[in-house]
Computed example of a mutant assay.
Amino acid sequence: METMAHPYQHLTPDLVLDAVEACGYAVNGRLFPLNSYENRVYQVGIEDQKPLIAKFYRPGRWSRPQLEEEHGFVAELESAEIPAVGALPMPGGGYLADYGGFTLALYPQRGGQAPDITLPDTLFRIGQWLGRIHQVGARQDFQHRPTIDPVRVIDEGQRYVLDAGFVPDDLVAAYRSLIPDLLDAIRACQERAGEVTIQRLHGDCHMGNILMREERLLFVDFDDARQGPAVQDIWLMLSGDAEEQRWQLGELIEGYEQFNRFNPLECHLIEPLRTMRLINQAAWLAWRWDDPTFPMHFPWFGQARFWSDHILMLREQLANLQQPPVRPPGP
């Protein structure tokens, strides 16, 4: 039986170069793939200019209106003089082009390193910029991009990994029995948080998506932009034990509130969002398993050790969900 080729198997180096040239740039033949799994991203050499970054979106993931909303949001941020790295305008208008069955965007090359969050001033400054980003995000809603919903994401993800047979047989019962308890605990956290403001967000604002360049912060990769609570763009920067996270949250919120009010009740959503991310990351690997690069780079995903560790982390999360949330230090 013949196996169907994955769409990215048709994304050859020649197609990449031809696509960039069709966008009006004289390529010099230099091509370097960058670390990206969901999409395909390349550094492309340009004659007598700095290289460009070409991003080829995964077919079928986002609709055209959803992609346009991402780029429109980043363009708003740039217009507000917020250091977000947006795509370059295309000759025909907009920020997207189509070539060879793929949709692509081109970006200026921006270097930098991950910020040093051990420095209080760094977290404070990140918080300031997030406050500005959310000011812009609150101006209007996304009409096509989804809204963060931990209960729905967890339910869909766990159903897929179970139905597709990714969880080893001897661990299915343990995994399946955890999910209702996690969802009940998440609903209880959401009730304690009450009604929170939902707005446009970066969506995946971890330290890998923030660059420090010559003391200037740059926010990159808005591919996961969506509607959600402000704390979604904050909690991903928390690490370490409870006391460390409390200090980090305090620095971030102090900077954030220079430009925007933070609702402290949203802290009740941190552990639900963390649980959602844990389950969604496993489901993401399962959803993408037909892409040959995933079994190549994540061979441990199909092993029982991964799932036993995953279940252990989810049990720890159940305990975390039942504890008081991390909060910034009081006055």
Rank of each mutant, 00 (worst) to 15 (best):
residue 21 E to G: 10
residue 222 F to Y: 13
residue 117 I to W: 09
residue 318 L to K: 03
residue 30 R to W: 06
residue 88 L to A: 04
residue 156 E to N: 10
residue 320 N to F: 08
residue 258 Q to R: 09
residue 167 V to G: 13
residue 161 V to D: 13
residue 89 P to C: 03
residue 224 D to Y: 02
residue 321 L to V: 01
residue 55 K to W: 07
residue 111 G to V: 07
residue 62 W to R: 11
residue 218 L to F: 10
residue 153 V to Y: 15
residue 177 S to T: 10
residue 212 M to A: 05
residue 323 Q to N: 09
residue 113 Q to K: 13
residue 179 I to W: 02
residue 327 R to N: 07
residue 286 A to I: 05
residue 121 D to V: 15
residue 296 M to Y: 13
residue 141 D to V: 07
residue 268 H to T: 01
residue 28 N to Q: 06
residue 315 R to G: 14
residue 282 A to F: 05
residue 301 F to E: 06
residue 2 E to Y: 11
residue 293 T to D: 15
residue 229 P to I: 00
residue 20 V to Y: 12
residue 271 E to Q: 08
residue 108 P to S: 09
residue 30 R to K: 07
residue 313 M to L: 14
residue 20 V to H: 04
residue 241 D to L: 00
residue 117 I to M: 15
residue 173 A to E: 14
residue 157 G to D: 13
residue 283 A to I: 07
residue 276 M to A: 09
residue 56 F to K: 04
residue 86 G to P: 11
residue 161 V to P: 15
residue 259 F to R: 02
residue 156 E to Y: 10
residue 122 T to M: 14
residue 215 E to K: 04
residue 222 F to L: 01
residue 73 F to A: 05
residue 260 N to V: 01
residue 158 Q to R: 12
residue 240 G to C: 00
residue 11 L to I: 09
residue 204 D to V: 03
residue 273 L to V: 01
residue 39 N to Y: 06
residue 84 A to Y: 03
residue 254 E to W: 12
residue 152 R to G: 11
residue 236 L to E: 09
residue 203 G to D: 04
residue 102 F to A: 08
residue 17 L to M: 13
residue 104 L to D: 06
residue 158 Q to I: 11
residue 109 Q to R: 11
residue 270 I to H: 05
residue 41 V to G: 02
residue 278 L to H: 09
residue 123 L to K: 06
residue 263 N to Q: 10
residue 60 G to V: 01
residue 128 Q to G: 09
residue 40 R to G: 13
residue 127 G to P: 13
residue 158 Q to H: 14
residue 315 R to M: 09
residue 238 L to T: 00
residue 15 L to K: 04
residue 58 R to P: 11
residue 305 R to A: 15
residue 268 H to Y: 12
residue 217 L to G: 00
residue 305 R to N: 13
residue 241 D to R: 00
residue 15 L to N: 07
residue 224 D to K: 00
residue 77 L to P: 14
residue 247 W to G: 09
residue 16 V to A: 05
residue 289 W to F: 06
residue 214 E to Y: 07
residue 296 M to G: 08
residue 219 F to G: 02
residue 163 D to M: 09
